[in-house]
Simulated assay, not measured.
Amino acid sequence: GMFIGSYDIMRKAALRIRKAALDLEVSRVMVGECGHAWRVAYSFWNTLTGVGAGATDEYALKLQNQLDSRYPQPQHIIEYTHDLIQRGKLKFDKSENDDRNVTFHDSCNVARATNMGGIPNGQFILPREVIKAVCNNYVDMERSTIKESTFCCGGGGGLLTDDLMEIRIKGAMPRMQALKEVEKTDGVNTLVAICAICKSQFSKVLPKFDFDPYMIVSAHQLVSEAIIMEKPQTDDSVTQEAEEVTE
């Protein structure tokens, strides 16, 4: 709803999420790597739906009682993954991403209208800490072009259509110039964003600035490439281990 500037549609979509949460009896409501979704969830879901204290209708109060207060409500998937990393619940082989020299684009909605982790500037800190936990080669772009001073990807605000490609290319130019600098100085070949619009926009405009269109990835793509998936124990393996201990 926010994407097209309609409060009514935004509320209608949010109430669908509330209904699903109530029907499924979930303890957490989590938001993926989407800038508009996280901005709406972080800023409006409390009064729109009762995900977080705020709304006072019967179903909002029911949901507030149902959700687990030990976790942020709602919770961004970056917060979820960051928490697991901090508690040592995930294991990574960072060398799986050694072919990548990585930088991060702060998406507008996340950077300017939300927070993560309940700490000042958490929306800047947590994504970078997740990325650094799964890759060895990370560098930020020029400080004046990131975090609270970030540039727009050039495809937000309803511009994400091929009919407006010329405007999209011009809008992306400041970010592309900053990216070109770290490509020259640090060999950056991977650009991470946690916003679907940014990723879609960059995949189209990167070639216009002589970049590989496939260099744009999500943070959790890097996580998935580095994560070590341990083989679950079967009954046979448990029995074998017990016999070895006995011997």
Results as ranks from 00 to 15, higher is better:
E96G: 00
A37Q: 01
G122N: 13
K94F: 11
E166T: 01
C153R: 01
D68F: 10
T49R: 03
I228Y: 02
R168N: 12
R168F: 03
Y71Q: 07
D23F: 10
H105Y: 01
S95N: 12
E33L: 14
Y7D: 11
H105V: 10
F151M: 09
V130W: 05
K19V: 10
F3I: 10
V40I: 05
M30L: 13
I78H: 00
P72S: 03
A41R: 07
D163Y: 11
D8N: 15
V238R: 09
A172S: 15
L179R: 04
D236F: 14
K199G: 13
L126I: 09
A53Q: 08
D8M: 11
D162M: 15
G156A: 03
N65I: 10
D57G: 09
G1R: 06
T150Q: 00
E243V: 09
W45I: 13
R16L: 15
M165E: 03
A242F: 13
L179I: 12
A111S: 12
F209I: 11
W38E: 02
D68L: 05
M141T: 07
A20D: 14
V102Q: 03
Y42R: 02
A133I: 10
D57R: 07
K147E: 06
P74M: 04
R112E: 06
R168H: 01
E166N: 09
G171Y: 04
E129D: 15
M173E: 14
R175Y: 12
M215D: 06
D235F: 10
A113P: 01
T150R: 00
R16W: 02
K62F: 15
Q123A: 00
E181Y: 09
C108Q: 02
S107W: 00
R39Q: 14
L63W: 03
E25G: 06
D83V: 06
H82Q: 05
G117K: 10
Q66M: 11
Q221M: 15
Y59Q: 15
I216P: 00
G154F: 05
S218F: 06
